[in-house]
């Protein structure tokens, strides 16, 4: 029961984000004098909205969602010429923008389980935030480690986040089975996380987060199956996808461990987006007869 209300709670922001994403996209297409219906119909704006809403805290205020979604759609996509022409992942661009501009609201995690009504009230500012909020688990761990504590003294686990990640893993496997995405990026992404986390925590288990927590906390599974696999901004050659995914995974662990931000999926993806043309050029498959 708690799971179901939690599930609904997480959805409150999603519906709002999707609506505003479609509205912004339609508005901008109108300004650009482009046909509106086919572009909305392909669902890409709705997808950007949902991915962004999933990435930001469940209880972020409504204007955070609107600002983030608008930035993602306008600066992440439409200014480059619309779908298919954007070098960066629009949702992650929106997320990075929000994280840098509004760090407080973006790192507030709603305790562990939040219901739909609670989420609704907080998002639309009907109820004071304090009743629910706390730092996210990754943020918390980082702060505590910085204060000189060691892993065994901390609670590094979060059941809610583990559930979320398990859900994304299942969803991702479904996409794989349906052949919507190819296996290269998720596999390389997760191996990048596992290998880097292993190398870090191998000698020093007390100061570095263990592998399983890297996998089950934050946006790992969401990133592996839903974010990094965005075909437009990802590598397009089979070999390139492996390199691309691996380095995103590696960068995430490095940012989580040494960076200033609690989670690094957005920055890792954006950084690797920049390298896509280079990787694609040097990983062309061998053409028959050449």
């Amino acid at each position: 029961m708690r799971l179901i209300t939690f599930w609904l709670g997480c959805h409150c922001a999603n519906y709002f984000a999707v609506t505003s994403a479609i509205a912004v996209e339609a508005l901008f297409l109108k300004i650009r004098n482009q046909p509106i219906a086919p572009a909305i119909g392909d669902g890409s704006a709705a997808l950007t909205g949902i991915l962004l809403a999933i990435s930001i805290p469940t209880i972020a205020p409504w204007w955070i969602i609107v600002v983030g979604v608008s930035f993602a759609i306008i600066f992440g996509k439409q200014l480059y010429g619309g779908l298919g022409n954007n070098p960066f992942n629009p949702a992650m661009l929106g997320y990075a923008f929000l994280l840098i501009s509004y760090p407080l609201q973006m790192t507030t995690w709603a305790g562990d389980f939040v219901t739909f009504t609670q989420a609704f009230e907080v998002i639309f500012n009907l109820n004071p935030v304090d009743a629910l909020s706390g730092a996210t688990r990754l943020d918390d761990v980082k702060t505590q480690l910085a204060l000189g504590k060691i892993i065994s003294e901390l609670s590094v686990h979060s059941t809610a986040q583990a559930w979320i990640n398990a859900g994304f893993l299942l969803g991702g496997l479904y996409l794989l089975v349906r052949r919507v995405i190819f296996w290269h990026i998720p596999l390389a992404f997760l191996s990048g996380i596992v290998i880097t986390a292993f190398l870090l925590s191998f000698g020093d288990t007390e100061h570095y987060l263990p592998i399983q927590n890297h996998l089950m906390l934050g946006g790992t599974m969401l990133g592996a199956f839903f974010i990094a696999t965005d075909p437009v901004s990802a590598c397009t050659t089979p070999k390139g996808r492996l390199i691309y995914g691996f380095f995103i995974g590696m960068l995430i662990v490095i940012i989580r461990t040494f960076g200033n931000y609690p989670d690094g999926v957005a920055f890792a993806v954006l950084l690797m987006n920049i390298t896509v043309p280079l990787i694609d050029y040097y990983t062309q498959p061998k053409v028959f007869g050449q």
Binding site: P38, L83, G84, T236, P285
Partner: peptide, 24 residues
């Protein structure tokens, strides 16, 4: 069917019998 934008999904290069990258 109406033509939409290329999203570089890579289905084409999986199908290409001579291993080209049609999306590029």
């Amino acid at each position: 069917p109406s033509i939409q934008e290329c999203i570089r999904c890579g289905q084409c290069n999986q199908a290409c019998p001579v291993n080209l990258l049609p999306q590029q």
